[in-house]
Design a protein around this nucleic acid. Structure first.
Lengths: 250, 250
DNA sequence: CGACATGTTGAGATGGATCAACACTTGTGG
DNA sequence: CCACAAGTGTTGATCCATCTCAACATGTCG
């Protein structure tokens, strides 16, 4: 059964539609050739499936080519915290290489297409293409920055501020990737995900989200999100956005 | 005025007492020589001083040689979230290289000794010593893992669990570095820091900490911490520790 | 049709925040 | 040497943001 909406990444990295996007740093032909040889294949992950299991991490490294996913950790009684959301171009599984044990799980939110790399080829990559090693560090640092921001949100913002932050931040990331059309974007996250990402209960998330919507700050229906009053959302979230550099992509 | 207790890092990296510690991955003589040439000097940061300002990040990269520090972010109304604590061997300022703007501040908790590296030599390091580039990615991933854990704590653990987690985690890290003697370690963190790290109010932190102490789980006085009932703390925090590999150090 | 996931809403309970004192220590300047 | 300010820890009273529990609505899918 073909997965609706998502197509697997092309055989040749030179044909990669994602890499051509405005958001990404260009690579040299040599780098591209190496990436293509390094890549061990592609994969499709249906919505809801585990890309990396929290208990039994596989040894693979992925680049998310299309679709959404999220990283999470759980406590043994089931409480779950979503660490960050993953969008096309994000790398998956890099931490596994360095962690002392299983550290987190990754789950697909939508049907997702992935480029697969063997984890044990990582050192080879650093050795042969230091510039790509540099890019990997960049990606790691960038993701850490994202978690930092989420920790600030969860630790110090109240429920309204948290929601505003989440909406703005995801909108901004999607926009950068060209996923926003006519001021509206596909938003494949349900309220349970939002609650788990923000450290709130499901019920309170619902009520707060509803209040924001009734104030006319945003609209969220049919899986589509639009920000009706971005200024106000920025003010509430205490969020200041900066011009974003092109980011590397493996 | 000499800073009590902390000595600056030695002139020659070969004489580095820290690197000789059990916790760190050995480096080759060539790597060591490069690190020494890469290093632009050493510095002392008095307790409470900014190592990296949240507003005006400097372009430097540091390794914390002795003493404690912490990374933090603040909201514009002053609410502060501590992202993680830094102990000897940790790297400081790596994210700055990749962030689009100022991302976080770093402050010394105790008098601290630092090795200083020029940030703009980073690419040179990757190019000439890919193995050190690999180590930097490792350090970045490791720190991200730490923030992940803190996000889980702040988002999903209650006050008691958070405190237990913090005590265990810091104790464990200190132990690894040989900073625990006779079951007791220097603990240079006040309750305001703890509150800011855990997303709690100062008052509630005090009351919860006090309760744990009265239950005989730990003792914290005179700036010294001992865990009197680690088993119980582990159970409360839902924390399982794993054997830790040696980690790299720049 | 029933089962299930998801969203919505109200009522009541509570963990943690806020406010307000006060104790103790340390350093400083008169 | 004392008086005082500043930083830190402690404790009680009260408040409220958020959680929990419990229904019910809606849509999808077999």
């Amino acid at each position: 059964m073909p997965l609706s909406g998502t197509s697997a990444c092309p055989r040749r990295c030179a044909d990669c539609r994602l890499r051509a996007a405005h958001a990404f740093k260009p690579v040299s032909p040599q780098e591209l050739a190496f990436i293509e040889s390094f890549r061990s294949g592609s994969a499709l992950a249906p919505a809801g499936s585990a890309i990396i299991s929290e208990q039994n991490p596989n040894g693979k490294l992925f680049t998310l080519y299309a679709g959404w996913a999220f990283r999470y950790k759980t406590l043994s009684d089931g409480r779950r915290q979503i660490l960050n959301f993953l969008l096309p171009g994000d790398i998956i599984g890099l931490q596994q290489e360095f962690a002392d044990g299983p550290s987190h799980g990754v789950e697909a939110l939508t049907d997702a297409a992935l480029c697969v790399f063997p984890r044990d080829g990582l050192w080879e990559l650093f050795r042969r293409f230091p510039s790509l090693g540099y890019d990997l560090t960049w990606l790691a640092a960038r993701e850490e920055g994202m978690v930092d921001e989420n920790l600030l949100t969860t630790g110090r913002r109240n429920a309204t501020e948290r929601l505003a932050m989440l909406l703005i931040h995801l909108y901004r990331r999607a926009e950068r990737l060209g996923l926003v059309q006519d001021g509206s974007m596909a938003f494949p996250i349900n309220q349970q995900h939002i609650a788990d990402a923000l450290g709130l209960s499901l019920v309170h998330t619902n009520k707060t989200l509803r209040r924001l919507q009734q104030l006319g700050l945003h609209e969220l229906k049919g899986g589509q999100l639009s920000l009706l009053n971005p200024k106000a959302l920025h003010r509430i979230a205490d969020y200041y956005d900066l011009p974003m550099r092109k980011v590397p992509m493996l």
